[in-house]
Nucleic acid binder design. Structure first.
Lengths: 196, 196
DNA sequence: CGTGCCGTTGAGCGTTGTCAACCAGTGTGG
DNA sequence: CCACACTGGTTGACAACGCTCAACGGCACG
């Protein structure tokens, strides 16, 4: 995840990273990090040396373009999150996040048609959605009571994906996933390599 | 501005563009726009043809890097806005926006040390901050009463910039402006051209 | 068998939203 | 020159959403 800490001790989570995502392309270009990065579950991290990066961005325009593409998708996601926080009540907001994670995890082969591992605590959800943890708890119960989700142990299941989309006002176009094959492993295209 | 419209008629504004900013680098890379762009005041727009763009991104790595840099700064701004909406009450949120605009407008020579033209309506502010227009009105009055801002006609003045920063919890580091000269015209560096 | 994390619940309060009305300024057409 | 409509800002009353504080229970871990 990406996050920022505030003077008053508050934390705002601004992004979730799934396998295949880049976590700090910023540093190479901007020279400085303006936020923190943390792991919410076991992670495997690949390093690209500064020299390699410099080499790629000066000599390999197609790859540079693919990396740029990845940051633009991140940007699109941030915009959608902004809409989420600004214009939707907490329950729809949470439902929207669940929809997004389903699609993104499917694209890397980490979700079935209707469910995925969900290791987040309610406090972390609260720091993501900009609401209190108590309120997250109540909204979760409501979503469960309405049959929109089930959350047992660490697994989130969405019985009727279409209905949750409807409820959350979710439209995955902002993720810029290329739609083809339905086999749940679309990683190459998500990373934009295929087009370049 | 960048914005999205929702099915219920709501609008969320996700970014303000000041002179020198790029408005749709996305299209060339992502191939599709996922949000709308609108003008809030008279604008002058420069077009770059697709062919020129293709040429730049394949043959001019330094310029490509500068463009990429610009999108990364936009991304940083989006993250800060997310923090703003998630973790700050409406009054501080508005103050934070005023602080950001002061710095950004100064960097393109459109603001004095303490004031700038502010053409937004309260309804537009509301759509930016994710609150109702009535509430914007009341928070504005409060900021005025506290002597943090004055807003006469279309001009916003910040009598004590340091105090407003304090109140809003504003730290301009996320804008990645290079600090040098204090003359309020720092456009070249803001666009990242100087470094490349 | 303690300790700590996480989830859950209740009560009361504060911020913010909704609805509705009103006012000032501006432009328009008769 | 004067209705008229329209936009943008302002105000009041009330409801609703979400927060804070506080306590408690289950569970894993040492």
């Amino acid at each position: 995840m990406r996050y920022k800490l505030l003077p008053d001790g508050g934390r705002q989570i601004m992004a979730y990273l799934v396998p295949g995502d880049f976590c700090d392309l910023h540093v190479s270009i901007l020279g400085e990090m303006d936020h923190g990065i943390g792991a919410l579950s076991a992670c495997e991290v690949a390093y690209i040396s500064r020299r390699t990066f410099e080499d790629l961005t000066t000599n390999r325009p197609a790859i540079t373009r693919a990396l740029w593409w990845a940051t633009l998708v991140d940007e699109g996601t941030l915009r959608e999150w902004l809409v989420n926080m600004g214009r939707r009540p907490a329950d729809q907001q949470m439902a929207h996040l669940f929809c997004e994670l389903l699609v993104r995890l499917q694209s890397v082969g980490l979700a079935t048609q209707t469910s995925y591992e969900f290791p987040l605590t309610q406090a972390e959800l609260a720091d993501t959605l900009g609401v209190s943890d108590v309120h997250v708890n109540r909204m979760l119960q409501q979503l469960r009571a309405d049959g929109l989700i089930t959350l047992q142990g660490k697994r989130l299941t969405i019985p009727d994906v279409e209905r949750l989309h409807e409820f959350a006002g979710f439209d995955p176009n902002y993720l810029h996933l290329t739609k083809r094959r339905g086999n749940g492993n679309d990683r190459a295209s998500r990373n934009g390599m295929a087009q370049s």
